[in-house]
Design a protein around this nucleic acid. Structure first.
Length: 590
RNA sequence: GGGGCCGUGGUGUAGUUGGUUAACACGCCGGCCUGUCAAGCCGGAGAUCGCGAGUUCGAGUCUCGUCGGCCCCGCCA
């Protein structure tokens, strides 16, 4: 094995072209592929910039040629030699440096490598379990390198954008006070104060509001957040937010600032021009039309409400549901009449697993419906229903009947299922929208009380202040979610900045004065010293990267993610700790 | 907390109603080879089938438990 001994890398493995023909170069990298002809040896040398073919010729370098014989996959080497244009017909169009090769004059083996458990950029797909265990190898794969690079570019666009717009990047504490509501906290025991704990931030919410009181005016931070909840393909216990807060603004000001950031991000990383301004839906509209507060607008298939058309029909499941205040609605699958009985049954079972009482599937025929249900409906009703869905012969109606929100949510989930099954979503599409006018409160069935839908610092709409106490469930919030391809990628609100209104909110949320003061006293105190009107937003950065990278999982855009059971397979966290460590913290494992 | 799918050489898979030497591809090792680029040809090594019980004359295959991976519901102010 050799040391560098003054060798300097002159070029990367991704940049040499015919222009450098005849140049003496020094490349360093990993042995990607080896093609040993027994005489000539070809090596694809890899670094993060690309691949370059280097050639060992025994006639020219008999001694180093013997060393080259020992090279194996993932050895780290340095090679010196002359760039030469490849002979006629031997160009490799698959790599950027395919027109040239480097004729090696001197070689250093900088490090050897064990045979890796999987080939870098190999063609057999490797299980995620193995990839996570050997993450340092997985990250050598081109796809992961691309994702990390995209993520890097997105950091840069974000920083440059906010800097340009007079935002100040401020770091907020990672060790903070545990907050009562919201997700479960990750706790950190205090050594100096045995029995007391810090919490890792679920978000820097209170800090950024205090920064507004502090006159920072415009703040942003790319910040790690922690929530001790179960994982999903788009949720990790530690994740990154782009956290933003602005003073002296109203909702539209925040939305505009965010839209321009999104335009920059798409343009500068993917070269995609987003359509501006971003479409806006009210929460009600989103729910009624798409059965979701994060609608995927990459395909149409709007939900149609036929309650009024079936309220007097003979089919008691429908009419009965409407009479009890429920709703009959559904979606149409164009060309769906080809669905077999079995396919419909499968769909029905899936919907039942999601809580549907049933699923009514009606094939639209040339004359009315090809369905046993047809006999329950007047022909005018059939025509009206067909028209409201805009269906014709060969289409399929899929209907659910239930309590209003349940019916809409089920129809929404049906919509997504069908899109998936029928491949209705083109992969290179990006559909962005705002969801606005959220309800301020949410009834918690378990706790039998209202909770904040967003968080307790979210301002109610001015026009709903009057009904706050009398009709709280109708009150709307100055809250907004940014939705991209069916994912919530950002959410925020205009905050309450006056102590009186904040107190009123706490009363509404059934948080006692003592409790509120105990948990948020510092914020309430701060509000008494001249808090400006302010509002902000926080992006789920990993999700955003995932979508732009066209990845199916957030894990593929995080360098060192946890598994579904919150384990890190590479370093084996979480782990036990020594009794001494526990003792020092005043802890005992029970 | 609940539901679904999965776990077989280093990697990815096959393995029939339970039946004797667990198969294939890639990778790995060795040999041949002066223009390959997913090099090629020939040969070879490598698996107590995640782990533990149980049923059985006999378990990769069936049952239970357990560990691990992925997806979903709950949860995620």
């Amino acid at each position: 094995m050799d040391n560098l001994e003054g060798w300097k890398r002159s070029h990367t493995c991704g940049e040499l072209t015919a222009k450098e023909n005849g140049l003496d170069v020094t490349l360093m990298g990993w042995v990607h592929r080896r093609r040993d002809h027994g005489s000539l040896i070809f090596i694809d040398l890899r670094d993060r910039y690309g691949l370059t073919q280097i050639v060992f010729d025994p006639d020219l370098i008999p001694e180093k040629y013997q060393t080259a014989k020992d090279l194996r996959g993932e050895f780290v080497i340095a090679a010196r030699g002359k760039v030469r244009v490849r002979p006629e017909g031997m160009v490799n169009p698959n790599i950027a440096t395919g027109t040239i090769e480097v004729a090696v004059a001197d070689l250093k083996i900088l490090n050897r490598a064990k045979t890796p458990p999987f080939e870098i950029d190999g063609d057999v797909e490797v299980s995620e379990e193995v990839r996570l265990k050997y993450r340092y190898l997985d990250l050598r794969n081109t796809s992961m390198q691309k994702n990390m690079l995209l993520r890097h570019q997105m950091y840069q666009v974000v920083r440059s954008y906010f800097n340009r717009n007079n935002f100040v990047e401020v770091e907020t504490p990672i060790l903070m006070r545990s907050t009562p509501e919201g997700a479960r906290d990750y706790l950190v025991p205090s050594r100096i104060h045995n029995g007391k704990f810090y919490a890792l931030p679920q978000s820097p919410q209170t800090y950024k509001q205090i920064l507004m009181v502090a006159g920072m005016d415009r703040y942003f931070q790319i910040v790690r957040c922690f929530r001790d909840e179960d994982l999903r393909h788009d949720r990790q216990p530690e994740f990154t937010q782009i956290d933003v807060e602005m003073s002296f603004v109203e909702q539209d000001d925040v939305l505009e600032m965010v839209e321009n950031l999104m335009a920059d991000l798409f343009k500068e990383t993917l070269g995609v021009e987003l359509q501006m301004p971003v479409r806006r839906l009210s929460y009600q509209e989103a729910l009624e039309t798409y059965g979701s507060d994060k609608p995927d607008l990459r395909f149409d298939m709007k939900i149609v409400d036929i309650s009024s058309l079936v309220q007097d029909c003979e089919f008691k499941v429908f009419s009965g549901c409407v009479k009890n205040g429920g709703r009959v609605c559904g979606v149409a699958l164009l060309g769906g009449a080809k669905y077999s009985r079995k396919q419909v049954d499968t769909l029905t079972e899936e919907m039942q697993r999601e809580g549907a009482k049933g699923l009514v599937a009606i094939k639209v025929g040339a004359e009315g419906w090809d369905s046993s249900l047809a006999k329950f409906f007047e022909s005018e009703a059939v025509t009206e229903i067909n028209e409201s869905f805009g269906v014709k012969e060969g289409d399929l109606l899929l209907l659910v009947a239930d309590e209003k929100n349940t019916a809409l949510t089920l129809a929404g989930s049906l919509r997504l299922k069908l899109a998936d099954r029928e491949n209705l979503i083109s992969e290179d599409k990006y559909e962005l929208c705002w969801v606005l006018d959220f309800p301020l409160l949410e009834y918690d069935e378990e706790e039998k009380r209202y909770g904040a839908r967003h968080h307790p610092f979210t301002s109610p709409m001015d026009e709903d202040l009057a009904i706050l106490e009398d009709n709280p469930k109708e009150a709307r919030a100055k809250a907004y979610d940014l939705v991209l391809n069916g994912y919530e990628v950002a959410g925020g609100s205009i905050r309450i900045h006056r102590r009186e209104l904040q107190d009123r909110m706490f009363r509404l949320l059934n948080i006692s004065e003592e409790e509120a003061y105990d948990k948020f006293g510092f914020l309430l105190d701060a509000f008494e010293y001249g808090a400006p009107p302010h509002g902000g937003i926080a992006f789920g950065f990993d999700r955003l990267v995932m979508i732009l990278a066209r990845e199916q999982s957030i894990r593929n855009v995080i360098a060192f993610p946890k598994t579904n059971s919150a384990l890190s397979l590479m370093d084996g966290s979480p782990s036990s700790v020594s009794d001494d460590q526990l003792k020092e913290l005043g802890l005992r494992v029970i």
